[in-house]
């Protein structure tokens, strides 16, 4: 019998193949954040009087959070709703493929997409806006754990959200509402975040996006930029804690709400 791990790996391969062949979703999920970065970076160039810190550099760091959220959360949420509707899940349920193998495949897809997304955004930052990449291993280590927790939390929340989506045609629009709202609340498009009303920062602090953006800024901005954060420190411990809590919440929610079919059985 083919192991669940092997089937999951093959699902991952086929998911990636299907994704790259669907040019529309490729462009929208993938290059849209890069386009936003180009626009924001250009419009707000030289708007801070902070030495060695251009607006474009701040946006590059924050947009990695946005790119990760859209790619992981939207791809997962819309993808599962689509699979439920077009018969993919029903077909798999009649084969030796388990739910675990299916999700393994989805996670491989999301991991590949978000990694590629980060590369694209960093490339825009480095090539267009002359952003220097960190040279010390410590910062990349910070990047690794924040990225891993972010992708996991957003993917699991995407699985949970797919249960709320009634049909795949409207899934993208429905799921984008909380995503875009959270980007604004969390200061991804507005820097420094302290320009936002206090209650908004408090509200944003309950959700993962603020912490993801703050974490990525801590990796890609100079240490002096910490003065522009709401708390005046990077708060790595709190970032880890809140993202981990969302991972657990996402796991519990997705286990409780996942359905193979859209109808009652």
């Amino acid at each position: 019998m083919t192991s669940t791990l092997t089937i999951g790996r093959r699902r991952g391969g086929i998911e990636i193949l299907q994704f790259v062949r669907d040019k529309t979703s490729l462009i929208f999920t993938f290059f849209f954040p890069a386009l936003l970065l180009l626009l924001f970076g250009t419009i707000f160039s030289d708007s801070y009087d902070h030495p060695g810190l251009s607006a474009a550099r701040v946006f590059t760091a924050s947009m990695i959070a946005y790119g990760t959220v859209t790619t992981a959360f939207i791809t997962m949420g819309v993808g599962i709703a689509t699979d439920r509707e077009d018969g993919t899940l029903k077909r798999l349920r009649g084969t030796p493929a388990t739910a675990t193998a299916y999700f393994l495949g989805k996670l491989i897809l999301v991991a590949a997409l978000t990694a590629a997304e980060v590369v694209v955004l960093l490339a825009v930052g480095v090539l267009v806006f002359d952003m220097p990449l960190p040279s010390d291993a410590g910062r990349w280590l910070t990047f690794a754990w924040i990225f891993l927790l972010s992708v996991t939390a957003c993917s699991l929340l995407g699985i949970a959200a797919s249960a709320l989506v009634r049909n795949s045609r409207t899934a993208g629009a429905v799921l984008n509402v909380p995503v875009v709202a959270l980007q604004f609340l969390s200061g991804v498009f507005i820097h420094p975040i302290t320009q936002l009303p206090g209650w908004m920062i408090t509200l944003a602090s309950f959700f993962p996006v603020k912490w993801m953006a703050q974490g990525f800024r801590s990796v890609f901005l100079p240490d002096s930029a910490v003065s522009m954060e709401a708390a005046g420190t990077w708060e790595h411990g709190r970032i880890a804690l809140i993202l981990a809590v969302w991972c657990v919440a996402g796991l519990v929610l997705s286990l409780a709400t996942f359905r193979w079919t859209s109808r009652r059985d």
Binding site: M1, D22, D83, G87, G94, P96, T98
Partner: peptide, 20 residues
């Protein structure tokens, strides 16, 4: 899954795998 390996299901209406 061992039982599922021994059965074959021909689904009634599907539109999956469109891009493969």
């Amino acid at each position: 899954r061992h039982w599922r390996a021994r059965i074959g299901i021909v689904l009634q209406s599907t539109s999956d795998a469109a891009d493969l």
